[in-house]
Amino acid sequence: MTRIINRQPAPLGRLVLATLPFILLALVYLLASDARLAENPSDKLLPSMQSFVEAINRMAFEPSRRTGEYLLWVDTWASIKRLFTGVGISAAIALLIGVANGMIPYARAPLSPLVRALSLVPPMAILPILFIVFGLGELSKVMLIIIGITPIMIRDLQLRTDALPEEQLIKAQTLGANSWQLILRVVLPQLLPRLIEAVRLTLGSAWLFLIAAEAIASTEGLGYRIFLVRRYLSMDVILPYVLWITLLAFITDYLLQLLSKKAYPWYHAQLGEK
């Protein structure tokens, strides 16, 4: 008999197997929700599909009675703006310091221990400091994301720089490159696809820090809304918001992957070789 490690599902079977857990989860939810609602029609813990539709309609397609804004879109825009600003700034800093640490021993000597120490500080523990120093505005939320993910990205890019074959660096020097030219033409272009990978891996943490900051001090944003309606046990709003955040995260990740494949075909060809 063929070993189980050597048996492959057919394409259709693969699709069925992939969707099955989701269908099962939905089914379990519907059954549980029905059972609870049969017992107590005003139960709020597991709302019915209909309440979800109504809640989504209310949040996304009707203006809020108090402010006249479409709350879901206002929240989404606010969160996305903070997230992308934070991640963008982090990526730029990480690329700069990561490459400097990887290539220039005199940059690495003072910076590397510092980055290492900073990466061990729990970002949530210094959130109050951020609020005190930067106020309760946008800056402190973006700063939390930056402080949360930059050290990890720097260390990642430093390792990636170290991992470039020594042979390439020697070759570039024999072709007459000075240090700057070598970094600009040989190192940086090879690190860009790796930077995209680092961003993809840290996006989850970035969302975590964003929602934490929004939950504590904010007036709009996806995290803010979830924590606000929690007071009314509004599961019919919280669950769609969570799904929406997941979807946004998925789309961002997918787009980054697509960008990497389009812009750096040589990188993906190289990965395929191994």
Binding site: E167, Q168, I170, A172, Q173, L175, Q181, V186
Partner: peptide, 30 residues
């Protein structure tokens, strides 16, 4: 390492992010 000494290693002595032509042009561009 300096330009008086050319080197060819067993592996990794070309730049994977450049086409063949760009690889050869690089020395003059520097």
């Amino acid at each position: 390492p300096s330009p008086e000494r050319g080197i060819v290693f067993q592996k990794y002595s070309v730049f994977p992010h450049m086409t063949a032509l760009e690889n050869v042009m690089l020395a003059d561009e520097f």
